[in-house]
Design a binder for these strands. Sequence first.
RNA 1: CGGGGUGUAGCGUAGUCCGGUAUCGCGCCUGCUUUGGGAGCAGGAGGCCGUAGGUUCGAAUCCUGCCACCCCGACCA
Length: 491
Amino acid sequence: MAKDFSTREENYSKWYNDIVQKADMAENSAVRGCMVIKPYGYSIWEKMQGALDKMFKDTGHSNAYFPIFIPKSFFSKEAAHVEGFAKECAVVTHYRLKNSPDGKGLIVDENAKLEEELIIRPTSETIIWDTYRGWIQSYRDLPILVNQWANVVRWEMRTRMFLRTAEFLWQEGHTAHATETEALEETAKMLDVYSTFAEEFMAVPVIKGIKTANERFAGAVETFCIEALMQDGKALQAGTSHFLGQNFAKVFDVKFTNQEGKQDYVWATSWGVSTRLIGALIMAHSDDNGLVLPPKLAPTQVVIVPIYKDQDQYEMVCNKAREIESKLKARGISVKFDDRQTHKPGWKFNEYEFKGIPVRIAIGPRDVENNCVEVARRDTLEKESYQISDIENKIANLLSAIQDNLYQKALSFRENSTHHADTWDEFCKLLDDKGGFIYAHWDGTAETEQKIKEETKATIRCIPLNNKPEAGKCIYSGNPSTQRVIFARAY
RNA sequence: CGGGGUGUAGCGUAGUCCGGUAUCGCGCCUGCUUUGGGAGCAGGAGGCCGUAGGUUCGAAUCCUGCCACCCCGACCA
């Protein structure tokens, strides 16, 4: 087979870029740091959106849409929020262009300066809480459970396709509650939605945890996250759910009258996942032959390739193939029948392989004669002959087996890449030799965390929610610690 | 944003030091033979050499600005 992929071994980041490009998911655009998500990449995002959106609706949320522009004054209200985002904001200062006096193109019309500059949203808490003030008077107006699907802009200095781009697509949920308990429950509920989505749809095992103060969302009281491990041993934050306390309610003056007739500030949460998940999907499952997609998120789950020598055979084979196609479709499987005569079967095999289609069915004259087909699965690259009778159920079972296998493979990779370190030397050695998640004791101070980051580039990914208390000594400072936290180098 | 590198046909490249409008492979088009893992042969099309200036009789080549991408750092939910 012709090889035009870099391997993970040779150059992991080139391998990643090759997959994005050659699987036709995205390309760089004329604008620095921004990518064009191509139809194939976008259809994966649509599959993710579909599954997540249903989960949001099932947990009582509704979609809405808020402006992309945020007045600068809104943005500056919450101190920590400003601190976190100010350095990466795109700002609109003018609203008109005019012809240049020298006749060479367009220039900004200085007479069209905005009285108040507009920030292009890096996240929408401020505009949303400014809006919620008008929506909430009484406890009867609560809770508000809103999600928006949107683009956001964060002016990143260094970008990578899907993982970090200046503009990206995401969803952001913003909820308002009458009590702290209810807001905390919402935060936990949405974290569960994310972990369920990651594990059941993406087939990526994740660890639920709490962020340390250093890694917390700017403006949150507490940030919860799901952390996944990529094949190069680096961690990836796959989703976050924030308990915002009354921080935004206070600065935007969002009060309500409770059942006792007293005024109180509203409790808030926000939560989001982005197109970064596509990067996670690539790095969790793909191999040196290209993309590998879990069936539940594959835009096409099965491709059928006809094999023939002449036009008579072509027609005979295609007739049989179409029968199979319609059986599979009736079973709810997404199928592409590639009857193009402009490409040879071998070419198609390779094409669908590096695009990660979970199952390929090849059917030729010999198969028609024997009433069978050749079935190849992308995850293991194994081929097997299937009798056509009951093909739809056999394929449905196979898809589900592939989904499970991908999850199990990713899980055992993570288990094999998870280590405990009890000394500083051990910790450094593990990081350099193997990467992965390292459970280690930490004294709980931001200073120690910062020092460890400076010396090793490893950060505390999270304090796992299911953590067991365990007395020990901080690997860096030697000070007492009550539990292990997860360290890793991260994307 | 700092340091380094790159930019030549859709993609990957030679040519750049030592100025004379461009090489090769893949892909594309046409025809014939092919079709169970990226087909073969023959013919053909396609490039103001990233962009804007400058030097020169003449610039892909030398000089300057700008843009984009890659690597390293800083930064970063």
